[in-house]
């Protein structure tokens, strides 16, 4: 019987991430942003994206980083519909599942 290696957090690809892992990854991205003024640990599904603590254009930096980090391409028509962190996580989960 061969040995089946379990994927570690480091080796796990974006396509098999669950919602909690997506949120964790978003928090990690935010922690790297110098201009982000919000409380990263206070972010949950119901947090309004407008009230996360972005300082002016830092929200655009965040969107850029999401695309690069998750290896997805967002659509502007979808972006404008998102209000809560839940919407963003659902959107990313859908994109990753479809990848």
């Amino acid at each position: 019987m061969g040995i089946v290696a379990r994927p570690t957090a480091a080796s796990r690809t974006t396509t098999d991430m669950n919602r909690d892992q997506i949120i964790e990854r978003l928090r990690a991205l935010l922690s790297k942003q110098k201009e982000f003024k919000g409380d990263i640990n206070a972010i949950h599904d119901d947090t309004l994206i407008d009230q996360m603590g972005f300082d002016s254009i830092s929200i655009l930096d965040f969107m850029y980083d999401i695309e690069a980090d998750f290896n997805v391409q967002t659509d502007v028509a979808d972006l404008v519909k998102m209000q809560k962190v839940r919407d963003l996580v659902d959107y990313l989960a859908g994109k990753l599942a479809a990848a």
């Binding site: 254009i57 655009l60 930096d61 969107m63 850029y64 967002t74 502007v76 972006l79």
Partner: peptide
Amino acid sequence: TRSVAMMHLTTRM
């Protein structure tokens, strides 16, 4: 300003 470039990179407009 970085705004124009960032809006372009985010929206691809």
